[in-house]
């Protein structure tokens, strides 16, 4: 039976959560190999085994921008093994590697997938379109390898209790062109819980009116032990860092409570948060699309409601 491969990035010394979600899915489809990009460690490999990887190809790209050289390495590996499906996350480096690999293998990439199925004739994927109101099913026929990019949180990560995988070190091939090099890495400081894993998220949008008003979002979030999120509009405007963006090009969150303040609810924002347990929205426009997904919609002014909310929380 041909393998399913999963591309997994290291995040703070361990396999990324997204990678573990994909491994969980992959092992339901058959034998599974992890392609692990990062420094690597016995603990990290053991975690990959616990989530179902029987084999690990360990790739360390060092300071090379991974996209092109890692695509070349995987393309070589794919030529030597029987692989039917290669799963990637809808994430920055995953997208780069998948794109480069697609050209090398001469096959398309199914992007933004919410589910993936192997069929008798090929592969089938589901995609949420029009802000998640409809599902488009796409297909590619043949024997593969098929390249699929899966949105975060499409599958729940669950350990299978697998043992230590077989680990093979993979060298980066010389791709023959000058590559791109990472010369500095900047980590933005942030307080409070990580956005992706947070149980409560308080987000702000352009309706806040200015960067200085984001502070109230932070204060409410701190009071609730919540992470802070943002729309692309205010990230692009430079009010808050990119790492806080929720949505199609940003992070996908699934907290038990999501509070949207001054956010219109554009479809690119909705795809990143509409699967939250309970959604509370504050917007002064009664027709704002965000109300279409809100369990509690408050038509009103954030500048009047948020200070009172904070005051009440502080007095408890």
């Amino acid at each position: 039976m041909p393998d399913t491969w999963v591309f997994i990035e290291e995040s703070e010394g361990a396999p990324s959560q997204l990678g573990l979600e994909l491994l969980t899915k992959a092992r339901s489809l058959g034998p599974t190999t992890a392609m692990y990009l990062g420094t690597g460690s016995d603990e990290a490999f053991a975690t990959l085994g616990e989530y179902g990887a029987e084999r690990v190809f360990h790739i360390d790209a060092g300071d090379a921008l991974p996209g092109a050289p890692v695509a070349a390495a995987i393309s070589d590996l794919a030529g030597q093994h029987d692989v039917r499906l290669i799963l990637f996350g809808q994430a920055y480096t995953d997208r780069d590697v998948a794109g480069g690999l697609a050209v090398r293998l001469g096959t398309g990439v199914l992007s933004n997938s919410a589910d993936v199925r192997l069929t008798d004739s090929g592969v089938e994927t589901d995609h949420e379109i029009f802000g998640g109101t409809q599902i488009a099913t796409a297909a590619i026929g043949g024997d593969g390898p098929f390249l699929v990019l899966v949105r975060p949180k499409s599958f729940a990560a669950e350990a299978s209790g697998g043992g230590a995988p077989e680990v093979q070190q993979v060298d980066l091939p010389d791709v023959g062109v000058a590559g791109a090099t990472i010369v500095e890495r900047h980590v933005e400081e942030h307080e409070g819980p990580q956005l992706e894993g947070a149980d409560v998220v308080v987000s702000g949008g352009r309706g806040l009116g200015g960067a200085e008003y984001f502070e109230i979002i932070e204060n409410v979030a701190k009071k609730l032990g919540a992470a802070t999120g943002a729309t692309r509009a205010i990230v692009d405007a430079g009010w808050v860092p990119y790492a806080m963006q929720v949505g199609q090009t940003g992070k996908t969150v699934k907290p038990s409570v999501y509070i949207a303040c001054g956010i219109s609810g554009a479809m690119q924002h909705l795809v990143g948060m509409k699967d939250s347990g309970t959604i509370i929205a504050i917007n002064k426009d009664p027709d704002a699309p965000i109300f279409g997904v809100a369990d509690l919609g408050v038509v009103g002014d954030v500048h009047r409601i948020l200070p009172k909310l904070l005051e009440t929380l502080n007095s408890r």
Partner: peptide, 29 residues
């Protein structure tokens, strides 16, 4: 080689209650 085979409606998440703020909405939150 990529084709779209079907389009179906997604399970809908419907909006819940919508209230107008008359000074007390924060208490509902």
């Amino acid at each position: 080689d990529q084709i779209v085979t079907s389009i179906t409606d997604a399970p809908e998440r419907s909006g819940g209650e919508k209230i107008e703020d008359e000074g007390e909405a924060h208490l509902r939150i």
